[in-house]
Nucleic acid binder design. Sequence first.
DNA 1: TATGAATGAGCCTTCATTCAT
DNA 2: GATGAATGAAGGCTCATTCAT
Lengths: 207, 207, 207, 207
Amino acid sequence: MKSSARLGRPVNADAERTRRRILLAAMTHVAEVGYSRATMKSIAEQADLTSAAIYRYFPSKADLVLQALDDVFADVVGRLEAAAFSVEGLRARLVALLEEALACMADHPSMTRFEASLLFESTHSPEFAAAVGYRRHTEETLYRRLVVEAVDTGELPVGTSVEAMVDLLTSVSWGLTHLSVTATADRHRAAIRLTESLLAQGFPTGS
Amino acid sequence: MKSSARLGRPVNADAERTRRRILLAAMTHVAEVGYSRATMKSIAEQADLTSAAIYRYFPSKADLVLQALDDVFADVVGRLEAAAFSVEGLRARLVALLEEALACMADHPSMTRFEASLLFESTHSPEFAAAVGYRRHTEETLYRRLVVEAVDTGELPVGTSVEAMVDLLTSVSWGLTHLSVTATADRHRAAIRLTESLLAQGFPTGS
Amino acid sequence: MKSSARLGRPVNADAERTRRRILLAAMTHVAEVGYSRATMKSIAEQADLTSAAIYRYFPSKADLVLQALDDVFADVVGRLEAAAFSVEGLRARLVALLEEALACMADHPSMTRFEASLLFESTHSPEFAAAVGYRRHTEETLYRRLVVEAVDTGELPVGTSVEAMVDLLTSVSWGLTHLSVTATADRHRAAIRLTESLLAQGFPTGS
Amino acid sequence: MKSSARLGRPVNADAERTRRRILLAAMTHVAEVGYSRATMKSIAEQADLTSAAIYRYFPSKADLVLQALDDVFADVVGRLEAAAFSVEGLRARLVALLEEALACMADHPSMTRFEASLLFESTHSPEFAAAVGYRRHTEETLYRRLVVEAVDTGELPVGTSVEAMVDLLTSVSWGLTHLSVTATADRHRAAIRLTESLLAQGFPTGS
DNA sequence: TATGAATGAGCCTTCATTCAT
DNA sequence: GATGAATGAAGGCTCATTCAT
């Protein structure tokens, strides 16, 4: 009854497109107002849909948002990793990583806020703990690789506490993320550059 | 028969005690579940009261939480400032400041999470913007004083961007705060120590 | 232990004074915002008391307000009756009655609104039915006496439906009462005068 | 297969039916217990719904009730106007108007009580002032037209105070309305008839 | 596939009322 | 006689979620 043609899977490319529209809307809206204040209705409106329709694609609000996080995360972590390992030397790698983070933010403006929202929320509600735990784990893994390799190559002194170093990097990453939420893009960039130079040369001295 | 005394102790110490119990409950509960998920009912229960009773002390949820923030903040900022200026030299001051922050957290375990909750929330809802803006401003002012004095004493090179430096410190502070929320106290402490040495001596090198 | 003197009943004339203050406050406040919107707290404040104190004098909000109504009513109905019977002839009596009503309003500005509030409320809630029923009954009795006497003296045709005539007078009274609530005092006065002339001479004609 | 039709009937007659059911329930319930005592829950139950469902149709309790008033009012004022101008002569018109009012009440039994509730409430709460003000204005406009025309045709003496006359009619209308709320339908009818004759021939005399 | 209608749970807030002091 | 503290019962409103169409 349908016109012939359409070889392969004519599967609803439409459906997939809608799915992504919802995902994007969720990300944007949560980034704007935070998870708790975000409503399915608003997300749906931003995706040109009814809230009921969303349930065709995602079983619940939490799930929708979690999948959005996964999507974003998969994209970002890949880029960060690639950037970090495109150069040699711990400091250079950290700088590259930070620069790439900056680039990511430019590409998806609401991404950082969105991530921050969810990670923050995860502290409070168990439903997010798992997914966010994984995300954190992945990020830490990346840092760990950097640190371990640096110890191996002698760039960091033997006996360095990998654990603590990873936490430091995580902390720095978080601090900058938060800054991106509260400060202008310019100030954020400036702070990143300063962090880079701090990592590269230590705290500046006047003498 | 009444001599002139009467100064000092407020008439009704009970009311004040209840007020503080509510404030504490609010802080604890918001720290646990975040502002949006926190309910007056839970706060009241944690303070051994009915939710209606809270309204004898605070006109609204937002107000209650804001006053809790003010209380905590007044306490903390004073301690941080005192600690920072109890020693000389930018690096030493930063170290002292971080150590005192650690001590504060030990004193009020849920404080950090609570503050983080509100500061985060303030990004999304205007009701908190003012109060949190003031808080941020005060923190930045403290950092600015440290930086400016360091430039004056020649500890930091002339031409240092005060703005960027303040942002860096804010960012570091935030990163560590967040870490305290997600990591164990021990790891948090270790990361702080590492940050201190990073500030003091720059990134470690193996050579 | 108390200073001697105070012969007779030193009984709390104070108490009675407080009671009346509360009654007055209730009347005023209910007149302003209506029964449902009136709160014990506001009434108490207007009487320079705590809401809890009111319960020493009145067992409940409904009771308080009802007693206030009784007070007002006893005063007013006496005056109206006296005024009506101070002259002869139905029309003259009605005129006198309306004029006295006008005088009452001048004396207790919020009285009319208060009465209207309660009478209105009585339509909706059974707790007031009894008291208001009594009030209506008394008013109707007054009208009935006027009408019956007028029939007796031949001023009204034999066969006049007393019932209907009483209802008419009640209706006129109500209409004017309501007008006093919605219009200015001047317009109210003008409408009363017109009603008086309508009763006295019938509807005006141009020919 | 679809011909050009499609004009007329709205797409979803169900929704409109529900809307009207809610409106009717609101009118009935408010008429019964007054605006303040009326609850969304009771209205919903009377309309076979959950209270939450009402909010799909009306944004708030005040709005719901106001729309109900508008509906009723639009219907009634049209009928009264048509009735009044279907005959000639002021007295005849007033009689026709009152008769039509009687008919309206028969059609919508709770209408009068409902209107009275709201008009009364409007005295105390500003939210209704606008809508009720408009209603009052419309009613007065109708009366004014009657009076002015009567002056023009010489039916009322030149120099008649239109303002006062309008107030008188408003007052009469209100008195009768209130009577309809407190008395039986029969007594109400009788009082109306008496009012009509009062207007037509002046107060009865025995001589 | 998407919608409109409806629900139920829950939240913040208000208020008459009680009671120990 | 009066207060301050506390309560319990509601009430208006929101929102994630379901379901028939």
